[in-house]
Amino acid sequence: MSEQDTAAAREVLIKYFDGTERLASIVDQEVPYPDGKLIVSRTDPQGIITHANRAFIEMSGYTREELIGTNHYILRHPDMPAVAFKDLWDTVAQGKKWQGYVKNLRKDGAYYWVKATVIPNIRNGQLVGYTSVRRKPSRSKINESEALYATLR
């Protein structure tokens, strides 16, 4: 758990790159990443979720029905700088693998940190979507990322 956690709730307007926005309740409380699990999801080329494994459902707090068909940015925490996601999309758009540390927003407003890897899914030479696999990050990497992202917001 982060030393900055207060478990206090606040309302934040989150604006997404496509012009949409939502008012989210943010709770400064970390949910620990479960040992041994991988969170797996897939999206179409536009970032719409097409597959969510059980670990993803459990950690995000959403039901499978709520996740499928929704843009992956529903998990974006307002503490994450936009530049991190720009780097992600610029990298995978070149057909390359992206890896980074991400603070994700749960449905209940709490958060969890992941080490995320995203790869483009190529079938018969065509981009059909992306696979994202998240794993448990170390506490030192979380601390480094928190400090770095605070300077980029």
Binding site: L38, H51, K97, T117, I119, T131, V133
Partner: peptide, 11 residues
């Protein structure tokens, strides 16, 4: 099969 291979590629 492709899904499993994509997943392994991420690892």
């Amino acid at each position: 099969t492709e899904f499993m291979i994509d997943l392994i590629d991420t690892l």
